[in-house]
Design a protein around this nucleic acid. Sequence first.
DNA 1: CGGTATCCTCAGAGATACTG
DNA 2: CAGTATCTCTGAGGATACCG
Lengths: 136, 136
Amino acid sequence: MPRIRHRRLDCSPGCAVEATLELIDGKWKGVILFHLLQGTMRFNAIRKRLPNVTPRMLTAQLRELEHDGFVLRTVYAEVPPKVEYTLTERGRSLEPVIMALKSWGDAHTSFDPASADRATGGTGAGPPDSWPACRS
Amino acid sequence: MPRIRHRRLDCSPGCAVEATLELIDGKWKGVILFHLLQGTMRFNAIRKRLPNVTPRMLTAQLRELEHDGFVLRTVYAEVPPKVEYTLTERGRSLEPVIMALKSWGDAHTSFDPASADRATGGTGAGPPDSWPACRS
DNA sequence: CGGTATCCTCAGAGATACTG
DNA sequence: CAGTATCTCTGAGGATACCG
């Protein structure tokens, strides 16, 4: 069984920011957490929401979330197999964080060049050329 | 000049979550953003706040933040050189996100086992063994 | 249905040294 | 002071195939 380790030990007043980021970082954890906020889901249900995820990656991410105490994995001894993923209390405590991320994303995915780059007496140089857009 | 690309294009209702996460992900961006919220800082001032960062990494992270329109880099034609980093409007718009991350981290760095893992009719098995603690 | 098992790639990140 | 320049390496993450 591969042990799960966290890497960031660097501290400072902003340590808490990094600590939290590290926990929800990892390619799919954010979205998984977001979807689980709507309720318990089964493996393939989650999978359908993440179009490009491979089973291997989804398992890995879910295992990390479980290890970090965010989700509870419940296996039913049935045929065919049934596994449910539910947020724990700790997992639900992330709701404000996830929602802050979502709100910002919703508000800024279509970027308005006129509102950025105007901080102080900026040069006007270095025009931001491209931000990623959300497809579909 | 190495072009900066973003990778995550995967969409779904939770797309915005991932989109935001991607922008502030990257080992040091969260803390940098956090510190810049307190005001304009110079390169070495930021560096002092991130004890274990190498100049190369700090430069890279700042360049990405600049590319994403979060920070403004102002170079003064002086000797010795002076470069200041300031948040843009767009950068400051991240404040709720950063603060959500920090609040959660502050509240959960000392983990209380009694409050987690009690979701539904949990098994009680799989005791969470170790979470990373903040040193210093 | 809900995963494992392998294999592989490549970009993120560290160490070290040097510079306008 | 504020960075570059290399060189190296780890491991997160993808592709593909198979299993209880």
